[in-house]
Computed example of a mutant assay.
Amino acid sequence: MQYQEDIFETMHVHNTTTIEGNKLSENQVGDLLEKGIVPEDKSLREVNEVQNLCRSGSIRRLTREKSLSSSS
């Protein structure tokens, strides 16, 4: 299940940042998020954009999980 969530997150982050003009490929996004590998030929702005979008999704997930567990 975690593997599928990781793939979805990579695809979501890639597609969302691509709309905004980010040039990282889906493979580069996956390597950055899963392995911490920063592409050498991309700008710091593009790398930060991917990392920040991923963090914001993680925060939303944690908040939702905490809310669901406290309402039980």
Rank of each mutant, 00 (worst) to 15 (best):
M1N: 02
Q2A: 11
Y3I: 02
Y3P: 01
Y3E: 07
Q4T: 03
Q4A: 15
Q4N: 11
D6W: 03
D6Y: 07
I7T: 05
I7E: 12
I7Y: 06
F8Q: 10
E9W: 08
T10I: 15
M11I: 14
M11D: 10
H12T: 02
V13N: 09
V13Y: 07
V13K: 03
N15C: 04
T16K: 13
I19A: 10
E20A: 14
G21I: 11
G21R: 06
G21H: 08
G21A: 14
N22Q: 07
K23M: 09
L24G: 04
L24S: 04
E26D: 14
N27V: 15
N27K: 14
N27P: 03
Q28T: 00
Q28A: 06
V29A: 08
G30I: 05
E34T: 07
K35R: 13
G36Q: 13
G36W: 11
G36S: 12
I37P: 00
I37T: 05
V38W: 04
V38Q: 11
P39A: 15
P39Q: 09
D41R: 08
S43L: 08
L44R: 14
L44V: 15
R45S: 06
E49H: 08
V50A: 06
V50T: 03
Q51G: 00
Q51H: 01
L53N: 01
C54D: 09
R55H: 05
R55E: 05
R55I: 11
S56G: 02
S56E: 09
S56F: 06
G57Y: 03
S58N: 10
S58C: 08
L62K: 12
L62T: 07
T63D: 08
T63F: 14
T63I: 11
E65F: 05
E65G: 00
K66A: 14
K66I: 01
K66N: 09
K66F: 14
K66H: 09
S67L: 07
L68K: 10
S69K: 15
S69W: 04
S70Y: 15
S71E: 15
S72D: 10
